[in-house]
Structure formats: C-alpha cells, structure tokens
Design a protein around this nucleic acid. Structure first.
Lengths: 195, 195, 195, 195
DNA sequence: GATGAATGAGCTTTCATTCAT
DNA sequence: AATGAATGAAAGCTCATTCAT
C-alpha cells in the first residue's frame, strides 16, 4: 500500500476547504456528508480530520474567510467620508467582493439565515449583527445631519443594499453579469436615499 | 389504553405543519428531524406519518401553500395593465403577502437556493424559474415598447424586487415594520425602471 | 421485511442489560462495542439506543443495580447493633450478595478502579467513597469504645473485608464455592479485629 | 529542520513506558490512545513506534516488569522452608514489592481480570494461573503434613492474601501507609491458617 | 386515528498504524 | 532517531420510516 503524496500539507488543506465549500453550496451545510467532501477533495477521511476538527470547523474556516472579506469590502470607508462616498463605496465594495467570491458570499448567507442566536455559528451571527447595528448608527447620524433622507434603517438598508444582494444571488446562480451593472446598482443605491 | 382526543384531525394536521415550518426555519430542512417536529407539535411519530408521507411531504405541503400565495401575490395583474400598474402591483402584492406570511416566504427561499436542478424539490425550482422567465419576457416587451428602461432583466429584477426581498428578510428576523414602508418600496421599484 | 416481536418492551430492555453485562465482563467496558451487545442480546442497534442513551447509560443502569445491592448488603445493620454483630453481618451480607450477583460485583469493581474523581462515572465513585468514609467513622467510634482493636481503618478494612473480596473474585472466576466458606470468612473477619 | 535531542534513547524509552503506565491506570488499557501516551510522554507518535511495536507491546513490556517483580516477591522461598516461613515470606514480599511498585501491581491486576483465556494477553493469564496452581499444590502438601489447617485453597488464599491485596489497592488509591501495617498483615496471614 | 417500540442504513468521528522525509 | 501527515477500518450514534397494537 503506497502512500501517494502529490500535494504539500497546505495545498491539501486548501483542497479540502475548496471541496467543502462546493459541497455546502450544492447540498447545504447540514445535508453535506464528510463522504461528499472526501470524494470531492480526493483526501481521505482521516486526512480531513487531521486538518479540521469536524464539519463545523470546516464551516468556520470558510466563514472566517467570508466574513473578513465581506466586512472589509462592505464596511470600509474613511471616517470622514461623506455619506455619498461612504454609501457608494460600500455598495461597490460589496458587489466587487461578491462577484469575485460568489461562493463564499452564498455560503455566508446560508449560515446567516440558519443561525439562531444560540446555535453553532452564533459567533458569526453576532459579528454580522454588530455590523448591521454599526451601519444603522452611522446612517442615523447622516440623517440628523441632513446628508440622507430620514428613513428607518431597515427600510434604508433594504433600498440601498437589497438590489446588490439580489443581483449577487442571481449571478451566483449563473445569470450573466455586465461591468456596467455595478455602476447602475451603485448609483441607484445613492439615488434612493439622497435628500 | 385510553385515547386522548383533544384536537380534531384537521387541527392536528395544521399543528404538525406549523411545527414543521418552525423547525425548518430554525434549523433548516436537512437538519430538522422528525423528533424535532414531534416535540414542537406535541404529536406522536405515528401521528405525523398518519397525515404526511414523510419529511419531504411536509416540506411539499408547506411549499404548496407558499408558492401558491407568492405566485398569486407577485405575479397577478391584468394582461392589459400598464407596466407601471403591473410592476407596482406585483411589488405591493409581494410585500403584502410576505408580511402576512413571513415564515412561508423564508422557507420558500431556503428551498429555492438549496435546490439543484436534479434534487428533491426540482419541481418547485422549475416553477419558480418559469415564473422568472415569464417576468423577463414581459419586461423585455415593455422595454421594446418604451414603457420601461432597457435593462438586462437580472439587473432590473434586482433593482425592483431586491429591496422588497431584503425588507421581508429583515421583518422576518424581527425588525419593526411600518405601513408607509410598503409605499416607499413600491414607489422606489417603479422609479428605478421608469423611462 | 417482517418485524418479529417475541418479547415485550421490558423484557427486551432486560435482555440488553444482561447482554451488556456479559460483554463488559468478558472484554471490559471500554473494549466492548455496541455491535458486541447487539449480537449478544439479539436486539438491533436502534433498539438498544431506544432504551438507553448510549454505552455509558448502559453501564450506569448496571451500576445502579450493583451499587444499590452492594450497599444494602454490606452496609445495613441496626444502629444499636454491637460491633461484632455489625461486622459479621456486613461481611456475611457482602458475601451473600456477591455470591448471588458475582457479575454485578465484578463490574462494579472494574468501574471503581477505572474511575478517577472527574471521569464519566464520578458519581459512582463518590457514592462508594462516601460508604468507605462512613464505615471508617463507625469503626473509629467502636475503637474508642473498646469494642474493637485500635487500627487505622484502611488496615482494619483490609483485614476484615479483603478475604471476602478476594474470595468473591475467585468464585466469579469459576473456582468452587462451599457454604461453610462463608462462616469461615465471617468468623475470620471478626477474629482479626476483636480486642 | 533541527532535531532537538534532550534525552538519550533509553531515557526516552523509559519516559514512554512511564507515561503509558500512567494512562493505562487512569483510563484503562483499551480506553488509552496512542495520542494520550504521546501527550503524557512528550514523545512523538513516530518515536513511540520506533521503540515499541504498538500499544500491545507497551502493555507487554510493562507486564513483563510487573509479573517478574510480583513473582519474585510473592513466590520466592527456599524449597525446604517451613509453611510459616514460606507464607510469611510470601505475604511480606508481596507487600514490599506492591508498596514499592503500586502502579505496576494495579496494572497487572487490570490485565489479569480483563483477560479471557483466548485474548491478547493470554500468555500473562496462563503464567499467573500456573503460579496459583503451584501455590495450591504446595498448600495442600502442607495441609497433608499438618503444617496448616485443611482448607480449600481458594478460601485459604483469600484469607491469607486477600487483606494484602486489599491494602495495596487502598495504598495505590492514596491512603496513608505505616510500616507496622506490614507486620500486622503478615502475622494475620499466618494466624488464619496455622493449625 | 393514535401510539411508540423496533429497524438498519448511513452518518460523524476516532485511532492504531505506516512511511516519506 | 525522530517527525507528523496520511490512511482507512471500525467505532458510537442518529434518524426516517414501519407496523403491531
């Protein structure tokens, strides 16, 4: 019984993570079995468990990448940026990252919806909720300063980011994307809340 | 062995369906066990199987209700309605139905995203895809007639319905809703595609 | 696929417990597999788990029976009994119970030795330790009253009960027992500590 | 890749053996994993397998030490010694060795009880059984010669050695030992079988 | 209608062992 | 001598489903 070792440890780890993401998206997290990941990655069962503590740990590793990328892309803007700059930048960042990482995004959304506040991925849920709350605070400050329309944040967030999320879902499902679409979505996001 | 009969058959059936929906939303379809539904509904295992052929049949019953309501609400409009009337009516219908049935909506969205074209709920997927295609045809006809801006339908659909879907997700997660929000979303949906 | 139901629920439960005890004694608790118990009991895997939460729960059920019998047999005596009556009664009780339930006794001893204070069966360990401590208190009171020799309790307990435990181990291993042996062991237990 | 060599091969071997014994006593042989031994010893998996063929070989090495010490201590006496000298010597030897090597003793007892005649350590079991049989023969010869009471050997052995084994178990569990205890146990062992 | 004991395939996970480095 | 990634058989356990009562 010869051991074939065609990949280094790090590559093997990446291959497992990639395969896990593919399976999670195809079948959903709960419906994915370790055997699925084994087949998709080419690794053996033991090898998967050598690198990851279990199915949950695989999801967490993927979520770590996803949440980091998503937060950086959608949340980052200078503290002294105008409302227009900040909003446009955030939607553009979200779309760019989402189009570049459609699978991570979709996985993050699956986990987000499935995660009660006390479940397995409560940590992720808490991070995302904190991001939402921070965005709400910022928006309300802009509203008081007259930089944006006065709207309840859930409505405002829906108007601004809803199209982008919907668009990214469609792209991830295989619909064709055009570069100009991004500009359209960014402009629409600002148009809908500008005073 | 005394048989306690506190509820009629039909009520028991409804209670099971209700409990199943709650569980599916909390844990996801795949992660929900019959035991979960048993506990949540108060019915016994045998009782559940008396009314439904299995876990899949429970989901199908819920989806039947959901798809019917959603289709009726978001698709219905007179064949000779103007683009503006049709679009506003469809978004308003979607929001009304979605606010009245937030849990069915969320469940339908879960199944939609999780369902590859060859899976267990392929039928549902096919129906929803057909609805999307029909809407795309209608939109393109309007665009040719100059009633709406010329936009690729995925983008247009995102701009029109994305906010509504996002808003419904937030409401289902517990954020507070205001009646005026509906008008705001309806107007925004038309504003973004009017010529 | 016909379901054969030759035994009532309670009988099936007992059969599983019996089979588990046999396996635990033959192979040791840790080395016994559910498959072993399945084969020995004739029950299916699912049936075992229908009645018991797991391998640990099987052990606990057996230990419950064992500890109860052993405590009752070796600890019971009137509060106003003399030292001689109490000691002889306790050794006789231990031997009678142990000869009638040699397998429960051996299993209890296995778990006792394997159980650190923080492990899976810590509860059992605590109960047995409490019994030992109570016996020590009683013995010291007798010693102060001049009813028994003044000896450190570990030594006294070894002198009194050591032969009985050793004897029970040999009997459980298949050596032949004689009724008179009990009297011999009881007399010896008293002789070795009487003033 | 630097190789740290803080211990010589022999020392490393001893450390592994020590760690294995600790683990075997804490968790039992079957429940101890190589990973446990790896952590407890500080050696790597590969290192353990460099010195020992496997888990069974570790147990055999420990048993070899134990059986040798125990046999020498409890069995040795001149062929022409009197019954009193032989019995007292054997109990004293057992206690001395057992107090000096409490962990080896306990491990030997575990393996002894756990070992069916056809299992992994059948060899050990056979050696110990042979020792028991030889002692029985010797005792019966003394009985015929009137040097000891006429008792079935299982009873006699229990009366003589039971207290010592019980005492050693208590000492191994942490109870305090006194030098005089040995004399007490030795005298009691003889008193109970002397004619 | 209603019950819950029984089933067994299939799941996640563990772990003794091997071997290229 | 030493390392630790890799293996895969086998373990404990779950759960959709059936069916005698």
């Amino acid at each position: 019984m010869t051991v074939t070792r065609t990949t280094s440890g790090a590559r093997r780890r990446e291959a497992i993570l990639e395969a896990a993401l593919t399976c999670f998206l195809e079948r959903g997290f709960a419906a994915t079995t370790i055997a699925d990941i084994r087949q998709a990655s080419g690794a053996t069962t033991g090898s998967i468990y050598h690198f990851f503590a279990g199915k949950g740990a695989l999801a967490e590793a993927l979520l770590g990448q996803a949440v980091a990328g998503w937060s950086a892309a959608s949340g980052a803007s200078d503290a002294d940026a105008s409302a227009e700059e900040a909003i446009k930048g955030s939607i553009r960042g979200l779309l760019r990252w989402g189009l570049a990482n459609p699978r991570h995004l979709r996985f993050m959304e699956e986990i987000r919806t499935r995660t009660g506040l006390g479940g397995e991925f409560a940590e992720v849920r808490r991070m995302l909720d904190a991001g939402f709350a921070a965005a709400a605070d910022r928006f309300e400050a802009w509203a008081r300063a007259g930089e944006v329309r006065t709207l309840p944040f859930p409505l405002a967030q829906s108007l601004m980011a809803g199209p982008a999320y919907n668009y990214l879902r469609l792209m991830a499902a295989g619909h064709p994307s055009r570069p100009e679409d991004i500009d359209e979505l960014v402009e629409a996001a600002w148009a809908v809340v500008k005073p």
